[in-house]
């Protein structure tokens, strides 16, 4: 039962209730729907912790079997434990060790990681320039116009560049983005309906 009908029935009831609550103005339904949202948030929190535990498990087996690069797995465990212990014991407020580690190590490292993409994106642009197709040219000409149109140098080169950039953003870019958003939203809605109706069950996994 737990392997088939019960989870499908739970998904159906939870899904259909959220759809009904969207249209309902009944205070009882609205209250239960609010509670359900809170429950979803709580269970989702557990699932994220499950992910962290699962990574820790895989990491531990790498250390035990002395696989290639296992000392780095030790480093990962030590820093994760440091962050976890400080977060669990002191809390996450300003002035705690947790906050110190975030402000002085994690946040600057995250910014550095993202900033490195500036170099890789430049190399990707160089390769795309060599593609010499109409689409690649269109992509790069648009990118150059948009970049120049948003900086003072662009305006110095040609005073019309900011207007051209605004037109690109407001017409062809918006049209394509709308097409992509509508298509993706229809796809997401269709998948949601399949989950509610029990046609999509891959989230249950195997076993």
């Amino acid at each position: 039962m737990m392997r088939g009908p019960i989870p499908v029935a739970v998904a159906f009831l939870a899904g259909i209730f959220m759809v009904i609550s969207f249209f309902s103005t009944n205070p009882a339904i609205e209250r239960v729907s609010g509670d359900f949202l809170n429950w979803v948030s709580i269970v989702s929190g557990f699932t994220i912790l499950l992910g962290v535990v699962s990574i820790a498990h895989a990491n531990w087996s790498k250390i035990q079997r002395r696989k290639e690069g296992w000392p780095y797995a030790v480093v990962l465990r030590v820093f994760r434990a440091g962050m976890l212990v400080s977060g669990f014991s002191e809390g996450v407020e300003t002035g705690t060790v947790y906050d110190w580690l975030f402000t002085n190590l994690q946040a600057p490292m995250m910014t550095t990681m993202f900033s490195m993409l500036a170099f890789f994106i430049a190399s990707a642009a160089y390769r795309a320039f060599r593609a010499r197709t109409l689409q690649a040219t269109l992509l790069l000409v648009t990118a150059i116009i948009v970049m120049l149109g948003r900086i003072p140098v662009g305006q110095a080169i040609n005073s019309n560049l900011p207007d051209v950039t605004n037109w690109i953003m407001a017409v062809p870019n918006m049209a394509a983005q709308r097409g992509i958003i509508i298509g993706a939203a229809l796809g997401a809605a269709a998948t949601a309906l399949r989950i509610i109706l029990g046609l999509e069950r891959t989230y249950m996994g195997r076993g």
């Binding site: 939870a14 209730f17 989950i195």
Partner: peptide
């Protein structure tokens, strides 16, 4: 599976209306 079914089912219900009413 029951816990996952609850989370995914409820999110599917929210997403269905959100996507159609809020985006499409």
């Amino acid at each position: 599976r029951v816990a996952l079914a609850f989370v995914i089912g409820a999110n599917a219900g929210i997403l269905l209306m959100q996507q159609l009413h809020g985006l499409v």
